[in-house]
Amino acid sequence: MTGINAMAPAPEVVSWAEAVEQDNAPHIQEGADGTRTETAFTEVDGVRWKVVTQFKVINKRVPKVVADRKKWVKFGSCKGEPAGPQVATTYVAEEVDMQFTRNRAGEQILDVQEDKQTAKTTSREHCRHCKGNDHWSTHCPYKVMYQLDEEADADKDTEKDRMAMGMRPDGRQIDRNRSDENTCRVTNLPQEMNEDELRDLFGKIGRVIRIFIARDKVTGLPKGFAFVTFESRDDAARAIAELNDIRMYHMVLKVEWTRPSN
């Protein structure tokens, strides 16, 4: 690159052929710190290659026996190989940092981790309460503290269940009020009538939320009365007006408001 830059302002370039010829000549440059950059050109199978090699020449004083051993001839698996390291057997691995576990102030850096590892490796005992590895759960010195914690957790779980079930007093009252307000009682019900027929009959009036047919606990036969809950009170009123005294099968239905149980 330096050569190219130097050539640019040169006045003696008179033709492109000369410039190309100069650029193709092998040359060597020396850096400030003693490194040398060697540029050579080679042609393989009609393709021109530019080979740039950067190296540094170091003169080192060694004992004579060491210098003599530098001239050893290759043998065995390396027979016939040229001088220098071969890429098949030698390469420079990635940079490795040395970790100091004691810094210059003398503090222990990796102690905690190692202690944990050691404890894990050596101990077979394990405590459920404090997660320690030096005693069993039954012999835990902190058992009382952890048991109190467990009771608190249990209480929390119970509360969660209550909320999940929707058993809050407010919710329950609201549900009950709505149910009682919109419910009408059907008496003189024929035994042959089942829930589907009842739903069909009362479904014409409005949307039916719930139908309950009272049955004998022992025999399972209908007792002859039922409760029907509508979505709105208007629907219930209309059902009472229209369906009261109608004839179903061989009975006359009686539809009226539900009397509050309490």
Binding site: K74, G76, S77, C78, K79, P85, T89, T90
Partner: peptide, 9 residues
């Protein structure tokens, strides 16, 4: 330099 000189076969 990590250059292998030979192997003892």
């Amino acid at each position: 330099n990590g250059e292998r000189i030979g192997s003892y076969d």
